[in-house]
Amino acid sequence: MNIFRLLGDLSHLLAVIILLLKIWKTRSCAGISGRSQILFAAVYTARYLDLVTSYISAYNTVMKIVFLVASYGTLYLMFLKFKATYDHNHDTFRIEFLVLPCVILALLINHDFSALEILWTFSIYLESVAILPQLFMVSKTGEAESITSHYLFALGTYRGLYLFNWIYRYYAEDHYDLIAIIAGIVQTVLYCDFFYLYITKVLKGKKLQLPA
């Protein structure tokens, strides 16, 4: 565990907490893509199945459980408890166009052709693009609430910090995993446009609004 990895995990944790608190406090999930949240639940489920097969550390186990619970908790709030506030008219990204290529790619490019490895690889590929329905929703409505912007910033920063972790590990431990690295680069690049708007607008106290 190095500092980039730890900060990455904390940023990820912060993101899911911001999202849950936003929905809970405002009693509304307006502006949040339920489709992205479904994809994230699929990502954590596919990746953390190894909870039942291998024990790594207390930290590892606790974080996995937190991400799973937070993810399904978010789905519960969006699709059951605060269902009436879900903005489904603007949440129209076709997720099968993301899921199917990820399934095919995971079957073709993986470390080992076994069920758990393919599911792990699928989760890595799917995570890299899971935010697209959310970014599509923001572009469709042309704006995002500040709290939604903070959520997106923390979530985007998390994988960016993992990239620094992998650079560090390449030099310090001679370790690298191309599947995770390439997917992590794709994932971080997808946020670049948003990062630019966040830094130039939201941090200056303005609402995130896209140019017309």
Binding site: M1, R5, D9, S57, M63, H111, H175, Y176, D177, I179
Partner: peptide, 10 residues
């Protein structure tokens, strides 16, 4: 070493 996944990463 090359391309082995680390089961500790989240």
């Amino acid at each position: 070493s090359e391309s082995e996944r680390d089961k500790d990463e989240l």
